[in-house]
């Protein structure tokens, strides 16, 4: 056990925890941020995807010690009306919804790194996040929609 300062969604939390505890369980059970999901525990499904300093990571295998000093963002930290979230509603993406926090976090990281992804880049970039309901085609459409919304409007001149 150790005292750990964790920055999550812009706030600092001081936790008394095992530094080896995966970030996923700290978020869910200690901070009660339930939007990030457990799916496999081996970083193979992406349901636990969050941002660490803006990059998508799998929280189920990332020890708390590796998150110290970094800025963690979870689905709760996106604000609810992020253009990616709006695009997800417009395309009616989720079915059961269990994987969608991870999908959205992966998609926002993808768009931050590449504001105009090709179809191939979207598919490759999202390959780490599984959806058993099979919403992949809608995810692809929503990312394209969000990319259009996020891109600076073309200068009319």
């Amino acid at each position: 056990m150790a005292k750990i300062d964790l920055r999550v969604n812009g706030e600092t939390h001081t936790l008394e925890a095992d530094p080896g505890m995966p970030l996923l369980w700290a978020l869910r059970d200690l901070l009660h941020l339930r939007g990030t999901k457990y799916g496999c525990g081996i970083a193979a499904c992406g349901a636990c995807t969050v941002h660490l300093n803006g990059a998508a990571v799998r929280a189920c295998m990332l020890p708390l010690s590796a998150a110290v000093g970094a800025e963690v963002t979870t689905i709760e930290g996106l604000g609810g009306n992020h253009p990616v979230q709006q695009a997800w509603i417009a395309e009616q993406v989720p079915q059961c919804g269990y994987c969608q926090s991870g999908q959205i976090m992966q998609a926002t990281a993808l768009l931050a790194a590449n504001p105009s992804p090709s179809r191939e880049q979207i598919r490759t970039g999202m390959a780490g996040v599984l959806c058993r309901c099979g919403t992949y085609l809608r995810i692809e459409a929503a990312i394209q929609r969000a990319a259009d919304a996020l891109r600076p409007q073309d200068d009319p001149a």
Binding site: R28, D29, H32, R34, G35, T36, K37, Y38, T74, I75, E76, L78, G80, Q85, W88, I89, Q92, V93, P94, G97, Y98, Q100, S101, I104
Partner: peptide, 27 residues
């Protein structure tokens, strides 16, 4: 018709079984 359950699902808000919290709960 837009699905009634979708807005919560893009915000990580729906309560799945793993998200249920009860006072004094253990795991």
């Amino acid at each position: 018709a837009p699905r009634v359950d979708i807005p919560a699902k893009v915000r990580g808000e729906p309560v799945f079984a793993s998200d249920v919290e009860r006072p004094g709960m253990v795991y």
